[in-house]
Write a protein that binds this DNA or RNA. Structure first.
Lengths: 131, 131
DNA sequence: GTTGTAATTGTGTATATGCACATTTGCAAG
DNA sequence: CTTGCAAATGTGCATATACACAATTACAAC
């Protein structure tokens, strides 16, 4: 089970990353830009929970985006909750990648068909919900 | 889609790795031990294809197992195809982890129920098959 | 025998992931 | 005011992943 899931993640990740290559972005980074844009996170810890990502992993992934000037946070210093938001550059880059994202999504949808597409979606939701 | 898949991989990986912790193994390593035990690979490249894993990733993952004395290869030197097989220690460790693996599998099967279990399995197979 | 080429593996660099431990902040208790 | 604790983030270390490039081997062509 875990083998199949990881294999699926590798396969689909490579396809999406190939599309994102021209923008020097990886799909994890786009997903975090999207999460920051959606807002609603009062801290990294809270965001980590919702992403099912280890907190320290998320910390470092966000730092990469900060160093590239795609996100920022008013709060400074360790020990205080961080609330991130997109910079103008981050917002612009996210806008640009949305059509690509949609295109990748549509391609898979066509390859699998509508029926399989929904079944796969709900299957992944179930697997991603375990703790 | 890729987000859901990666999230699912993170979630299920953590659960399996928690069980494997006492043996200082990660689920990727167990999967490679299993693949080596099943045999049938004439080279790292061929094995990488079947695992949907990037060749250089597989190379390094196998090196870790080799350094721990769990697998070995008669062929020596770069440029020649590598055929790995389990060492006695590797075979023993694999044997020991099988019940744990089965237990994790059974737990998920119960949590999800037989019907969802099969649907999830086939969904993951479909996603893992894309190139 | 030399040269060229295809197949294979290895290495450099960067991101992604997670556990264990450390550090900082803020606040409540006394 | 000090002490202690809970919450939050940061750091050290190791594995996992993949792309681009380098190096090696084996073999065919001449």
């Amino acid at each position: 089970m875990v083998l199949k899931t990881r294999r699926a993640a590798r396969a689909v990740t490579r396809r999406y990353n190939q599309l994102l290559r021209p923008f020097d972005l990886q799909c994890t980074q786009v997903s975090l830009l999207y999460a920051v844009a959606a807002g609603g996170f009062d801290s990294i810890s809270e965001m980590a929970d919702q992403q099912a990502m280890e907190r320290s992993t998320l910390t470092r992934n966000l730092q990469l985006l900060r160093k590239r000037g795609l996100i920022c946070s008013e709060q400074e210093g360790q020990g205080r909750p961080q609330r991130f938001e997109l910079t103008p550059q981050g917002a612009h880059l996210l806008e640009v990648t949305i059509p690509l994202w949609q295109q990748a999504q549509d391609t898979l949808r066509q390859e699998w068909g509508e029926e399989d597409w929904s079944v796969i979606q709900s299957s992944l939701s179930i697997v991603g919900a375990i703790r």
